[in-house]
């Protein structure tokens, strides 16, 4: 049974719960684990996301990487990371020559206005990235 007291207590709990945020150190170590410590270079990666997001619960996002996707030259992994969600990791995609093109899409959650980082690891070990700033008006994880 849902009483007014339960609803109020739950609402209060949501308000009083400390906002869980990833720290810059957590983001750095998550990205270092993905890249194997390689310093990412900016370029080749295109992170496609709306700059202004009404609803952070379901945000369409697509990542493209400029690569011929041949056996000799292809993208091995694509990673997506957030600065201020509770955890920095979003998803890691594993691709190969069978993919044909390096283009993936999904729908993600965004806790607040922040910077997203998309990274690609090539088969030659080089790492490329693009960072995108997004503004979120309704955050994920607030309503039940």
């Amino acid at each position: 049974m849902t009483t007014r007291r339960i609803v109020l207590t739950a609402a209060l709990g949501t308000l009083l719960a400390p906002a869980v945020r990833a720290t810059p150190a957590a983001l750095r170590s998550a990205i270092a684990a993905f890249t194997g410590g390689q310093l990412p270079r900016t370029g080749r990666v295109t992170l496609d996301i709306a700059p202004l997001i009404d609803n952070g619960n379901v945000v369409p996002v697509a990542i493209r990487v400029d690569s011929p996707m041949t056996a000799a030259d292809h993208v091995q992994r694509i990673g997506l990371y957030t600065a201020l969600n509770p955890l920095p990791e979003v998803a890691v995609f594993h691709l190969g020559p069978r993919s044909g093109v390096a283009r993936v899409a999904t729908r993600m959650r965004l806790a607040t206005t922040q910077t997203l980082t998309a990274l690609a690891v090539m088969n030659d070990g080089s790492v490329w990235q693009q960072q995108v700033d997004v503004i979120v008006t309704l955050a994920a994880c607030i309503e039940s």
Binding site: N57, V58, V59, A62, M69, T82, N85, P86, L87, E89, V90, A91, V92, F93, H94, L95, G96, P97, R98, S99, G100, V101, A102, R103, V104, A105, T106, R107, M108, R109, L110, A140
Partner: peptide
Amino acid sequence: ERVFAVDLHPAIAANPYLAFPLR
């Protein structure tokens, strides 16, 4: 033959949607 894989984390929306390429 495995042609695609993805690891998901809590920041993926409910009812996870994925689009990926295949030659």
